[in-house]
Amino acid sequence: MRERLDRLVNAITSGLALLGAVGVMAMLVHITLYVILRNFASAPIPATVEIVSYYYMVAIAFLPLAWAERRGDMISVEIFSHFLVGRIGRINAVFVSVVTFAAYLVLTYTTWTVAMRQFTAGSYVISLSVAVPVWPSYFILPLAFALAALVALYRGVMPPLPGAAK
């Protein structure tokens, strides 16, 4: 059971990191086409700046969050943690995971309320006479924070097996 759960968490978080990498490539192609079309055909792709800032950048920055949390690559302060070994060290790890989980839950709730407000309003931006709906991009943050919260809680409940790779 533990191994299946580990594989599931790894698959989900790795998939989100891969989606973030695909976002980088898509942004690269989009901006390159925009520059080429603008300079050689005088026909830039409408709303490129808006699509980059509302979709690509948000996805690139936040989708890999759960992946980084799973790997333990988030910022941490470990001044005294090397003194905490054995049971006390485990209690400290669980406490940190619970606090991290709570912080991600607050971020999830806050960004969810904003996303719902944008969805209800049907938010969009207009660029070169093109209306670009931006409300879907607001749902990336609560999704990313919720998954990072679950991974933080999972890390606290199920610490990595000895010798497990990141």
Score class of each variant (00 low, 15 high):
residue 25 M to L: 11
residue 87 R to A: 08
residue 47 A to C: 00
residue 84 L to D: 05
residue 96 V to S: 04
residue 19 L to M: 10
residue 96 V to Q: 05
residue 97 S to D: 00
residue 27 M to R: 00
residue 70 R to H: 08
residue 85 V to Q: 11
residue 9 V to S: 11
residue 80 F to M: 10
residue 70 R to A: 10
residue 83 F to E: 12
residue 29 V to P: 00
residue 16 L to Y: 10
residue 93 A to M: 10
residue 53 S to V: 10
residue 88 I to A: 14
residue 95 F to K: 11
residue 24 V to E: 05
residue 63 L to I: 06
residue 67 W to T: 14
residue 118 Q to E: 11
residue 43 A to R: 05
residue 112 W to H: 09
residue 68 A to W: 15
residue 36 I to S: 01
residue 50 E to K: 00
residue 9 V to R: 11
residue 114 V to L: 15
residue 9 V to C: 12
residue 50 E to Q: 01
residue 109 Y to H: 09
residue 122 G to E: 03
residue 84 L to P: 09
residue 102 A to N: 01
residue 39 N to V: 05
residue 27 M to C: 03
residue 81 S to C: 10
residue 62 F to P: 06
residue 54 Y to G: 05
residue 69 E to W: 14
residue 102 A to K: 01
residue 54 Y to D: 06
residue 96 V to H: 08
residue 66 A to R: 08
residue 68 A to L: 15
residue 102 A to T: 06
residue 24 V to N: 01
residue 113 T to P: 07
residue 114 V to I: 14
residue 55 Y to M: 01
residue 47 A to M: 00
residue 40 F to L: 06
residue 16 L to Q: 07
residue 40 F to Y: 07
residue 109 Y to E: 07
residue 117 R to Q: 15
residue 46 P to G: 00
residue 110 T to P: 07
residue 109 Y to Q: 06
residue 107 L to E: 02
residue 80 F to C: 10
residue 79 I to K: 05
residue 66 A to F: 06
residue 23 G to M: 04
residue 62 F to M: 12
residue 91 I to R: 09
residue 94 V to E: 09
residue 28 L to N: 06
residue 13 T to C: 08
residue 47 A to R: 00
residue 98 V to R: 02
residue 44 P to G: 00
residue 91 I to F: 10
residue 108 T to C: 03
residue 58 V to R: 03
residue 85 V to F: 03
residue 74 M to L: 15
residue 48 T to P: 00
residue 66 A to Q: 05
residue 56 Y to T: 04
residue 104 Y to L: 00
residue 104 Y to K: 02
residue 73 D to T: 12
residue 76 S to L: 09
residue 92 N to Y: 11
residue 27 M to T: 02
residue 76 S to G: 11
residue 28 L to T: 11
residue 101 F to R: 01
residue 78 E to F: 04
residue 71 R to A: 12
residue 17 A to L: 09
residue 110 T to G: 11
residue 65 L to E: 09
residue 64 P to C: 07
residue 46 P to H: 01
